[in-house]
């Protein structure tokens, strides 16, 4: 969900709308924002599952340290989505379709 108006910050600057592709689906994003912000704004919180135990992971630290939020971006694996800015036409791939859900 986007914070459009704010008591201290006022209205959100419009920003240039771009389209990114998540697992083949188009997603609206604001140019320059991190991939993680665009995904959270669309309500997506599970970014990947761990390879061994298939546990879900999303954003934790938001500063590129914890690597919980990594995804494949334009073919490059293990990209930290919290510190990588979106670009129009960017292709983001999670492993959510290949890795089965865990037991939790």
């Amino acid at each position: 969900m986007r914070v459009t108006n704010h008591p201290v910050l006022g209205d959100a600057p419009p920003g240039r709308q771009v389209t990114i592709w998540l697992d083949g689906e188009p997603l609206a994003a604001v140019e320059g924002e991190p991939i993680a912000a665009a995904l959270l704004a669309s309500g997506r919180r599970v970014f990947r599952r761990t390879p061994r135990f298939h546990e879900p992971r999303g954003v934790f630290c938001g500063i590129g340290r914890c690597t919980d939020c990594i995804m494949t971006v334009d073919g490059v694996p293990n990209v930290r989505t919290c510190v990588t800015a979106v670009r129009d036409g960017m292709v983001i791939t999670s492993n959510l379709k290949e890795v089965p859900a865990g037991d939790q």
């Binding site: 969900m1 986007r2 914070v3 910050l9 959100a12 924002e33 912000a37 919180r45």
Partner: peptide
């Protein structure tokens, strides 16, 4: 997220 990117997680 909320103050810089204006996104409520």
């Amino acid at each position: 997220m909320i103050n810089v990117h204006r996104v409520l997680p």
